[in-house]
Design a binder for these strands. Structure first.
Lengths: 156, 156
DNA sequence: ATATCTATCGTATATTTATACAGCATTTAA
DNA sequence: TTAAATGCTGTATAAATATACGATAGATAT
């Protein structure tokens, strides 16, 4: 009965889509989605998800996944930067070669660096080409798959 | 008796410098700084500051000024990107001309755009040059001053 | 199969936090 | 000056949240 996982997902969704100011309210919404738990469990869930209650501008509070938002902000920017310059990507051995519009290689490489991917050891940028050195033993296909998984917006 | 203002400042500092997991603890620290208030007042202060209590990785909670952090993260990145490419800046009329290392113009321009400055209407990037169009009526000196004020790390 | 471990949960409760209300000082209006 | 309005606070308490403890179910090992 791996209900918790599903529940966590729904909680995330509910928090994003609604302004919720107490666990009690969230419990109701959960109940509508056919998850029936107690406040105690919900409290634990929120801790797992690192959800916190932030003071609102007007006069109240609401729950928010701030850590995620923080990551997202910076991640989104990087992905935009990559997409902006990227023309193609190809592999040979443990090297990836990205072709970019002229002059964009640097910004693409910086953005890739900023993603801090375990799978990538480092990058070098020319004018319209970025060389990516992939971690030993990792197959390019595997890397591509993981990237697409993790960053669906990435146009690879 | 404008004690609250001072207190809010100290609270910010304390929150940045310590891992605080309850208002009670924060009250102690405040007391050390010679601010003696009740938990009720502190709760109100935290609301004003939009401080929230976030779940910690390990197993606890701590107070954090997330809104500020979120802005900072994205701002810091932009400033890094600018500094990385920037060689010089000069003005003529309502235009600013930034020279960059070859290939960096684009990433510098993007970063400037991302700062969303009221004073700047737009930018265009070549390969090693960024053109900045300044808001009508604003003197270049004034713009520089404001930028340095607002972003001390910026190497202009 | 039995024992041991692990993860998840509810109950009950402790802890923490927000706020209604009243008081006081300061400011503003009359 | 007096009255009304405003901002800030403490007290007391309500409301919200976290957690100790025990129970249960499923997994893993013996």
């Amino acid at each position: 009965m791996n209900e918790r996982k599903d529940r966590l997902k729904i909680i995330k969704k509910l928090i994003k889509e609604n302004k919720i100011d107490s666990q009690e309210k969230l419990l109701e919404l959960l109940s509508n989605e056919n998850f029936n738990v107690t406040q105690a469990t919900l409290s634990r869930d929120l801790k797992l998800l690192k959800v916190s209650k932030v003071p609102d501008t007007s006069s109240g509070y609401y729950y928010s996944l701030l850590e995620e938002e923080l990551q997202k902000v910076s991640e989104e920017r990087n992905i935009m930067d990559i997409n902006r310059g990227l023309l193609s990507i190809n592999f040979s051995g443990n090297l990836g070669v990205i072709r970019t519009f002229s002059g964009y290689a640097n910004s693409v490489a910086i953005a890739i660096d900023n993603l801090e991917l375990d799978e990538i050891i480092g990058t070098i940028a020319g004018d319209d080409t970025v060389l990516i050195v992939i971690k030993e033993g990792l197959a390019p296909d595997e890397l591509l798959k993981q990237l697409r998984d993790r960053f669906p917006e990435l146009e690879l």
